[in-house]
């Protein structure tokens, strides 16, 4: 299989008034065609920053190092002009809050047409047809009417569908979805997740799904990478991650996510608070919150190691038992 999208040794550092912050710490990821990679982590784990960097949307006080390859060309070394040709065309992004990601004073049909004209040079009539078809594809009722509407006139679910239509319009190779359903109601979330699943099989695009909701991950992902404090602590096949967990943080996340199909009296919570990114603990970043901590965890930073075929985990110990 060809490596469609690949991140190698990416680090992102921010200079702030309180010192430098390592938001992303030497991570490597890859995703293949037609595959869905889920990035799981809590707020501040660097999961969004990684992909904002890939899209060239890093804030001014941030610096990045490493390689981000799309079809073999490094996005980080590209000039703005070259990058603009790829963004929205070969690599597209779906944001958490469609209300803020869409321009408020432009009709949604117009906004999508701009993308289409820019990347494919489509004419007015053609683009209208393509957009209408795409709106029908993402199940927007009455596409003609909706195209003439402004974002605030649409409901949250429809806005997110518009975002998805905009991301799909150029048939990109990679779609990055940053918490696409967090701002939506559960019943609408279910609809949007179903739509993403269909898109995945139909278009064959690679989907990178950034989320904190393990339930969403369980439904759609092929592979999962768990991030904590800027590093990938565990990655592998979705079934491996859920049923053969190797890292205590993942184990903690799984045991404290509530589920409808189990009733427990006392939740096994992960103790403590997420670490402050400008003052990470020595050794393993997870050690102050880990319930299996040993002396070595406070001294040495664990490396990602193969535990099984394509199952990596960054822990000094082998935790095979659940």
């Amino acid at each position: 299989m060809s490596r469609l999208f690949e991140i190698k040794n990416l680090s992102v550092i921010f200079d702030t008034a309180d010192g430098t912050i390592r938001a992303v710490n030497n991570i490597s990821l890859n995703v293949n065609q037609g595959e869905c990679l889920a990035i799981v982590g809590e707020s501040g784990s660097g999961k969004s920053q990684t992909f904002l960097t890939a899209m060239g949307l890093l804030a001014d006080n941030g610096r990045s190092s490493g390689i981000i390859n799309l079809n073999g060309s490094n996005l980080l070394e590209m000039k703005r002009k070259e990058l603009n040709k790829l963004r929205g065309n070969r690599i597209a992004m779906i944001f958490q809050d469609p209300m803020t990601a869409l321009t408020p004073h432009m009709k949604v049909g117009e906004q999508i047409r701009e993308v289409l004209v820019h990347h494919q040079g489509a004419g007015k009539k053609d683009s209208y047809k393509i957009i209408k078809k795409m709106f029908e594809r993402v199940n927007i009722p009455e596409p003609d009417k909706r195209m003439q509407m402004y974002p605030h006139e649409l409901s949250g679910g429809l806005r997110q569908r518009v975002m998805i239509a905009m991301a799909l319009i150029c048939k990109p190779d990679v779609i990055i979805a940053d918490e696409p359903t967090t701002a939506l109601d559960v019943t609408v979330q279910a609809q949007i997740m179903d739509l993403l699943k269909e898109v995945k099989t139909e278009i064959g695009a690679a989907i990178i799904l950034i989320t904190h909701d393990l339930g969403v991950v369980a439904g759609i992902a092929d592979r999962v990478a768990v991030m904590y404090a800027g590093s990938v602590v565990e990655s592998g096949d979705v079934f491996e991650i859920f049923y053969n967990t190797k890292h205590p943080y993942t184990l903690g996340l799984l045991s404290c996510s509530l589920s409808l199909d189990k009733k427990i009296d006392f939740l096994e919570a992960i103790k403590g608070q997420p670490p402050n990114p400008n003052k990470l603990p020595n050794g393993c970043a997870f050690n102050p919150r880990c319930n299996k901590v040993k002396a070595i965890c406070k001294e040495k930073e664990p490396k990602l190691k193969f535990r099984q075929q394509s199952h990596l985990s960054a822990c000094h110990f082998e935790f095979g038992v659940k």
Binding site: V188, A190, A218, F242, L254, L260
Partner: peptide, 25 residues
């Protein structure tokens, strides 16, 4: 509502029959 809540368990989540509502509230 019950059927829309995702379950953090890949096997049972993928075997579930979803009965999705149409549209938004």
């Amino acid at each position: 509502l019950l059927s829309a809540i995702p379950i953090p368990d890949p096997i049972s989540e993928r075997q579930r029959k979803r009965d999705n509502l149409v549209g938004d509230a």
